[in-house]
Amino acid sequence: MNIFRLAGDMTHLASVLVLLLKIHTIKSCAGVSLKTQELYAIVFATRYLDIFTSFYSIYNTLMKLVFLGSSFSIVLYMKYHKTVHRSYDREQDTFRHWFLVLPCLLLALLIHEKFTFLEVLWTFSLYLEAVAILPQLVLLQRTRNIDNLTGQYVFLLGGYRGLYILNWIYRYFTEPHFVHWITWISGLVQTLLYADFFFYYSQSWKNNKKLQLPA
């Protein structure tokens, strides 16, 4: 494992911890998109089915369990915890996320490396992860006051994607035959979706002002 990959995983872990901290300690999910969280739960559930069929390392299995557990608990918290649920911006979080799931499934059925159940689901999870942040970005744009934790959550998620790209570049040059087009292209699309957010985040940071995205 290279430093970019480890840093990427740790940034991803940090983003989840920031979100859980907000929900668990402050008992608020204001500004957090339940649609995006549901999509991530689907992403991890379909990608990590291989914990039953393959073993890579203790690290790999542990991280998979952490991401599965955290994504499902965030969804359950937002849906069923009374106080947390009350802070949910239901009226603003209107992105029709199921319209992302179907095209991703169709695309995975069309473009994949092997036509097997696990492989198609794995490919589907990559396509879906690429666009899963969209409901969250739309909600951020609609939210007048973005609190620091929500901003940091999205910033860390974007950082994780950026570091994964550095990891792929590193692996391409250091490991023979490391070519994975599906992973790379969907990963690149996913990272590009954050570009706009990163611009406004850095502006607010530079000017020491509250983060606000233009309508």
């Binding site: 291989d50 393959s54 890579y56 794995w122």
Partner: peptide, 10 residues
């Protein structure tokens, strides 16, 4: 258990 090289990432 089979091991797929590309799936060692999360």
């Amino acid at each position: 258990l089979n091991k797929s090289y590309k799936k060692d990432e999360l």
